[in-house]
Design a protein around this nucleic acid. Structure first.
Length: 424
RNA sequence: GGAGAGGUGGCUGAGUGGUCGAAAGCGCCGCACUCGAAAUGCGGUGACCCUUUACGGGGUCCGGGGGUUCGAAUCCCUCCCUCUCCGCCA
């Protein structure tokens, strides 16, 4: 949610910034609604004040043993007028609130303009795409070779866009997640958290998935309206929701490994082969709850923490700054990490690190106490994959394959395999 | 799943349908006392929103929602949550 004070004070400025990311705000309608709201609110509060004062007087008169009937007659109609005013105000406020919930975040000034991913700006590279003296297989072929990746079984017991991993491949998957958690908790100072995978609608509203993107989610049938989380960002960031955090406690850094569930509606033709785009995948997620003035330093740090994993694994990657048109709804600035996949001869997204500034914090009322003002103010929230485990599995398989189809293990993963050099 | 108890400010915990955003204690902040600290005394100390250049003024909030009433923390309905006992279970 944007700051309503900014919206009121600089509506055209806000509209211009939203236009950068392709969002057209109807400023005339907004202005009109806002004026209506102001009038109604002032009027409503006056009426409430009158009712309060008069009711108090009745109480006093009664206590004094006076006849209160004349007073009662006098206020009899007032109550209805108050309710009427309250309802009118509530309706306008609901309408404004809906608009507010639908507005995407403002892009940071540094974010390049653009329409889609082709306008993203590469920032830096690390490592060189692996050279093979044979034609590298993709992960589907490698997985089949090891009898460790079974899409048919998954389709049989669930649906397409699921996978069953077996044996060494399943173990590699677990090792990757374990390794990431170990690095982030031991060396980067994150607190490991275990969170619900089903969350309430207001939680998804807090991070921005609802109300606009319900079609991307899986809802669960039952007595409670619950959704499967599309990312651990949702439950973990919301841990700060409805809280007032003392300044000394900032920043909070949390890491969680969770499955992520996405309906992938609207991506029917895309990445149908293999594990690239699944309805369920595992991710190790990093979340920062930051002091507002330090959130951009935090974004660099967080991105660095995700990069660290790729470097440790010896995987070539690049960092790109997303353009205004490719950024997520809640983000003010996003870096994507793209790993080299020999099977596709392309860099593919493996992590996305964003600063949402106060956008999510306002929605979920995540605040800190500013010692300078003594008042609660919104924190800044950041999140990033550190990393997407499924895609990381693909990257390791494809980058570490040898001519005979065997897969060598990156040094840092060998302790998770009893020191073995090869996956088996 | 069955039976019962309860959800009040940072915490503990009072609260009669009427001047209650709410006693008291603790905690925290300021001041006084002190060389300093402790103890003590005095004062202050919730969130959200509207309005105002400012000083200030006003409204809402006692788990959520709805109702009764001139007036609801207090009465009624409903949902959620917590605790205790029983059952069941990883």
């Amino acid at each position: 949610m944007l700051d309503v004070k900014t919206l009121r004070g600089d509506l055209d400025g806000v509209a211009a910034q939203l236009r950068r990311r392709g969002y057209e705000l109807d400023t005339k309608r907004y202005q009109a609604l806002e004026e209506e709201r102001r009038t109604l609110q002032v009027r409503t509060q006056e009426l409430q004040n009158e009712r309060k004062t008069r009711s108090k007087a009745i109480g006093q008169a009664k206590a004094a043993g006076e006849d209160i009937q004349p007073l009662l007659d006098e206020v009899s109609a007032l109550s209805d007028r108050v309710s009427e005013a309250e309802e009118g105000l509530a309706a306008v406020q609901r309408e404004l609130h809906e608009i507010h919930l639908g507005l995407p975040n403002l892009p940071h000034p540094d974010v390049p303009d653009g329409d889609d991913e082709s306008d993203n700006v590469p920032l830096r590279h690390w490592g060189e795409p692996a050279a093979f003296d044979f034609t590298p297989r993709d992960h589907v072929a490698l997985g089949a070779l090891a009898n460790g990746m079974d899409f048919e079984a998954a389709a049989r017991i669930a649906a397409s866009r699921f996978v069953v991993l077996r044996g060494p491949v399943a173990r590699l998957h677990r090792a990757l997640a374990g390794y990431m958690l170990d690095v982030h908790t031991r060396e980067h100072g994150y607190e490991e958290v275990y969170v619900p995978y089903l969350v309430a609608p207001q939680t998804l509203e807090g991070t921005g998935q609802l109300p606009k993107f319900e079609e991307d989610l899986f809802a669960v049938s039952g007595d409670h309206p619950l959704y499967l989380i599309p990312t651990a960002e949702v439950p973990v960031t919301n841990l700060a929701g409805q809280q007032i955090i003392e300044a000394a406690a900032l920043p909070l850094r949390m890491v969680a490994q969770t499955p992520c569930f996405r309906s992938e509606a609207g991506s029917y033709g895309k990445d149908t082969r293999g594990m690239i785009r699944q309805h369920q995948f595992e991710k190790v997620e990093l979340v920062h709850i930051s002091h507002p003035e330090r959130s951009y330093e935090a974004l660099e740090e967080l991105t660095g923490h995700a990069e660290r994993v790729l470097r440790d694994l010896g995987l070539a990657y690049r960092v790109v700054t997303l353009c205004t048109g490719d950024m997520g709804f809640a983000a003010a600035k996003t870096y994507d990490l793209e790993v080299w996949l020999p099977g596709q001869q392309a860099y593919r997204e493996i992590s996305s690190c964003s600063n949402t500034e106060a956008f999510q914090a306002r929605r979920m009322q995540a605040r800190w106490r500013n010692p300078e003002t003594g008042r609660p103010e919104p924190v800044h929230t950041l999140n990033g994959s550190g990393l997407a485990v499924g895609r990381c599995l693909i990257a390791v398989l494809e980058n570490y394959q040898e001519a005979d189809g065997r897969v060598r293990l990156p040094e840092v993963l060998r302790p998770y395999f009893g020191g073995a050099e090869y996956l088996s």
